[in-house]
């Protein structure tokens, strides 16, 4: 199949193998395996409660998976087993950054301060663990200058330059989403995980977000893993889509392939009542056109 050969030539940045996560009696993720490729925008989609956020929490070290292996391979070739690392090391060492489904900004700090906190480890080193900084060493002042430049770069990208000195909590919702992404990017990640970044955005904000994600990929080469509910966003910007339902993978491929996968249509679009008829129609249509493709 064309899809298979496509993946062979690609270089996986993140490999999830046989990942399982159990909460008491609930199997939130059940033997999930997938790969995300370097330079791609990979989308992880699925109905509510499918376990998408749980996958993110396992990747970023916030949950310890019950079983399975998550390998992050950096550009330089260094590999990290993320399931063995604690959450802050996943960011600091493995260079995986994330955002949250419920925005988590430092709302009392200013927008600029939010971006400086993200550069904490770098600045801490430059300030000689605070001691040289307290004494006002020039190396520290230089590092602060660079960090502010970096922050400005991302403020500009996220279109937040004029709000730099406002408390982050005062920003409108869409701007907070962009700020959270900008903050994650200030940690200089190789792999960026975004949990429903478009949720609750109006169409204009949604467009601005797509623009930001595209420019992140183009200008920094950061690979992106994206949870999304809105199919139109997914289809528009992602290179590769993984579909989850009840903690299991039901489809995996390029957007076109996934869009026409009857399992996906049944599971995902089937949620909305008014679309059921349309969906059934589509399934029948596809079943006629490509009966063998469902056996992926």
């Amino acid at each position: 199949m064309a899809l298979e050969t496509d993946t062979m030539t690609k270089d996986p940045i993140l490999k999830v193998e046989h990942l399982s996560m159990r909460f008491g009696g609930l199997m939130a993720i059940n033997d999930l395996s997938f790969e995300a490729y370097r330079g791609d925008i990979t989308a992880l989609i699925g109905p509510n409660g499918a376990g998408k956020t749980t996958v993110f929490n396992c990747i970023t070290g916030f949950y310890k998976p019950t079983m399975g292996m998550i390998t992050m391979r950096q550009k330089a070739g260094k590999e990290y087993l993320l399931e063995r690392m604690s959450d802050f090391e996943v960011n600091r060492n493995a260079k995986v950054a994330r955002t949250f489904q419920n925005i988590r900004l430092f709302s009392g700090l200013t927008v600029l301060e939010n971006l400086l906190v993200a550069q904490h480890n770098k600045l801490m080193l430059a300030s000689g663990y605070t001691i040289l900084g307290l004494l006002g060493f020039p190396t520290y002042k230089r590092a602060v200058g660079q960090s502010i430049e970096q922050a400005k770069y991302w403020l500009d990208k996220a279109n937040l330059m004029d709000r730099a000195d406002d408390p982050a909590g005062d920003l409108p919702y869409g701007a907070q989403r962009r700020l959270e992404i900008a903050r994650a990017m200030c940690t200089e990640p190789e792999f960026l995980c975004l949990d429903e970044p478009a949720a609750g955005l109006n169409p204009r904000e949604s467009l601005a977000l797509n623009e930001l994600l595209r420019s992140i990929r183009k200008d920094t080469g950061t690979s992106i893993l994206l949870i999304e509910h809105d199919m139109s966003v997914v289809m528009e910007i992602s290179d590769h889509v993984v579909v989850l339902e009840y903690g299991q993978k039901i489809s995996d491929g390029n957007p076109d392939f996934v869009k026409h996968d009857p399992k996906v249509i049944a599971a995902y679009l089937g949620v909305e009542d008014d679309e059921v008829e349309e969906v059934i129609e589509q399934i029948e249509e596809i079943a006629v056109v490509a009966p063998g493709d469902t056996q992926k």
């Binding site: 970023t60 949250f100 900004l105 993200a118």
Partner: peptide
């Protein structure tokens, strides 16, 4: 003080 989880996601010990 504002958000410990966010701090951890940014690589702060």
């Amino acid at each position: 003080r504002e958000d410990e989880i966010a701090c951890r996601s940014l690589g702060i010990n």
